[in-house]
Simulated scan of single mutants.
Amino acid sequence: MNPDAAAPAATLPTIPVPVAHDLSMLGLFLQADIVVKLVMVLLVLASVACWAIMIEKAVTLGKLHREVRRLTKFVRGDLKGEDASQGEGLSAQVLRAGMAEWQEGRDEDESRAEFRQRIEHAMRAVLGRLIRRAEPGLPILATTGSVAPFVGLFGTVWGIMNSFQGIAASNDTSLAVVAPGIAEALFATAIGLVAAIPAVMAYNRFAIRIGRLRTEGNAASHDFAAALSRRQGARRRHAAAE
């Protein structure tokens, strides 16, 4: 045996190179399971719809606020010289409804309180119908605010289940293997919260504003109906004196 013969080279163990994971928001979405992707897309669409509703409601309630303030100022006499009954705004329609009932006159067997209630009821009916037009879309905000976190949680649970199945298949529990799957799963919950929190805040804000506008408009209707009923009584006394 030749002692100078080269000994066979020792075989070195192969060290696996960890796969780099993209932990950006786009990367987490692209690497997620199909079910988690569907959950994320659904939540993003719900969030976009909620923001569209919030912008529309902000504009609509802003117009209603100006109309109700105009009605209140007219009833208080702050808009003297300005015909607030012209046009198709809320204040004009409410005032025309009250004037129409007043012009029909008071029945012989109708008390002054009943006459005032009839005028006020006509005005409140128009006011309520116009304010209800601002309510569509609010149920979507309420539903998104209450359901979106649970939808995101479902995506998280599903993603973690898949992550644990991958860990069991690879027999590797290192943080580099576990972290990306869990991050993808938790991203679904984060999107759910991003969709839910503005929706809840907007719903509460808009519901309070609508309630205040309805209360302020009803108060103005009550005052205007009372003024018209007194004017009707003065007209009757004047006619009787003649």
Rank of each mutant, 00 (worst) to 15 (best):
residue 67 E to L: 12
residue 83 D to H: 00
residue 95 L to T: 01
residue 64 L to E: 03
residue 102 W to R: 09
residue 9 A to M: 05
residue 69 R to C: 04
residue 46 A to M: 11
residue 106 R to W: 08
residue 56 E to L: 13
residue 102 W to H: 09
residue 55 I to K: 09
residue 56 E to F: 10
residue 104 E to Q: 15
residue 30 L to Q: 02
residue 60 T to D: 05
residue 57 K to G: 05
residue 80 K to M: 01
residue 77 G to C: 03
residue 62 G to I: 01
residue 102 W to A: 15
residue 92 A to H: 03
residue 12 L to F: 08
residue 91 S to G: 02
residue 81 G to T: 01
residue 78 D to S: 10
residue 95 L to P: 03
residue 100 A to C: 03
residue 35 V to E: 08
residue 85 S to C: 07
residue 82 E to H: 12
residue 55 I to D: 06
residue 43 L to E: 02
residue 55 I to G: 12
residue 94 V to N: 04
residue 38 L to S: 10
residue 85 S to T: 06
residue 36 V to G: 04
residue 112 R to Q: 14
residue 32 A to N: 00
residue 82 E to T: 11
residue 79 L to V: 01
residue 80 K to R: 06
residue 8 P to M: 12
residue 37 K to R: 15
residue 73 K to S: 08
residue 62 G to V: 01
residue 104 E to A: 15
residue 41 V to R: 02
residue 15 I to S: 13
residue 76 R to I: 10
residue 79 L to K: 11
residue 58 A to F: 03
residue 60 T to I: 02
residue 9 A to W: 03
residue 74 F to Q: 09
residue 15 I to W: 08
residue 84 A to D: 04
residue 55 I to L: 15
residue 113 A to G: 02
residue 66 R to A: 13
residue 96 R to D: 10
residue 51 W to N: 01
residue 43 L to P: 04
residue 67 E to W: 12
residue 71 L to N: 09
residue 63 K to Y: 00
residue 49 A to Y: 02
residue 54 M to E: 02
residue 64 L to S: 03
residue 24 S to F: 14
residue 85 S to E: 04
residue 34 I to E: 12
residue 46 A to K: 06
residue 26 L to M: 13
residue 93 Q to R: 15
residue 79 L to C: 10
residue 76 R to K: 14
residue 69 R to I: 03
residue 111 S to L: 05
residue 67 E to G: 09
